[in-house]
Design a protein around this nucleic acid. Structure first.
Length: 117
DNA sequence: AAAGTGACTTGTA
DNA sequence: TTACAAGCCACTT
């Protein structure tokens, strides 16, 4: 892992998302913060939508600050995200995921290597 | 240039 | 608790 200060904002977002471990989740806002882009949660969703397929990013591990999947309920993408999360053991109750339980807590070393200082 | 659009977030009621 | 308003920012019309 290398320091990403010279990567484009979009690439930093992709890199952060790629670090989210299986069975865990993060939020658009948190990813934006970790990528050095505070206040740009919406940009994270855009970056994920535009991510090249070959990167095979775990896009489904990014949910909103309410602990909910941000696609409209019962739409195709909503079902796919729900399915992928359940496959890795993330339980969804009443459409919500317990962030205190599944929220990704990056360790210090990970942050030191990843943050754009 | 102005207004509209989102896979967002936070504050307030 | 849920709901709505504002704030937010990068695009697109």
């Amino acid at each position: 892992m290398e320091n990403q200060q010279n990567l484009s904002p979009k690439a930093r977002i992709w890199q952060i998302v790629a670090m989210i471990p299986e069975g865990h989740v993060s939020t658009y806002g948190k990813v934006a913060d970790l990528a050095g882009l505070p206040g740009r949660a919406r940009y994270v969703s855009r970056a994920l939508k535009e991510a090249p397929e070959p990167l095979a990013l775990p896009w489904h591990r990014v949910i909103n600050s309410q602990g909910k999947i941000s696609f409209p309920r019962d739409t195709l993408p909503w079902r796919e995200q729900m399915s992928l999360l359940r496959q890795e053991g993330v339980t969804v109750n009443q459409g919500k995921i317990d962030l205190s339980k599944y929220g990704w807590q990056p360790d210090l070393m990970t942050l030191l290597m990843a943050l754009p200082y």
